[in-house]
Amino acid sequence: MRARITGGAVVLGIVGRPVAHSLSPVIHNAWIEAAGLDAAYVPFSPMDEAGFQTLVAAGRAGMIRALNVTAPFKEQAFAHADEASEAARLTGSANILLFEDGRIRADSSDGLGLLTALKTQAPKLMLDGARVALLGAGGAARAGAGALVQAGAEVRIVNRTHERASALAADLGHGVEAAGDEALDDADLVINALSVQPEFDLARLRADAVVMDMTYRPVVTPFLQAARARGLVVVDGLAMLIGQAAPLFEGAFGQAPPPLDLRALLIRHLETAA
Rank of each mutant, 00 (worst) to 15 (best):
L23E: 03
P46C: 08
D38C: 03
P43E: 12
V26D: 05
A58M: 10
R60P: 00
S24R: 00
D48Q: 14
F52G: 04
S45L: 09
G36M: 06
Q53K: 14
V26R: 06
G59Q: 01
A40D: 09
L37N: 04
D48H: 12
V56I: 11
T54G: 14
A39W: 01
G51S: 11
W31R: 12
A61Q: 09
S24W: 02
G36S: 05
G51W: 05
L23K: 00
M47N: 14
R60I: 09
I27G: 00
E33D: 15
P25C: 12
F44L: 13
Y41M: 11
A30R: 11
L55C: 04
A39Y: 00
N29R: 08
G59F: 01
P46D: 11
L23C: 07
D38K: 00
F44V: 10
I27D: 08
A35G: 13
A40K: 06
T54F: 09
S24I: 12
N29T: 05
I27Y: 12
F52R: 13
A57G: 04
E49D: 15
L37P: 03
A35L: 10
G59W: 03
A34E: 15
I27S: 05
A40Q: 13
E49Q: 15
H28F: 11
S45K: 12
F52T: 04
F52Y: 13
R60H: 03
I27K: 11
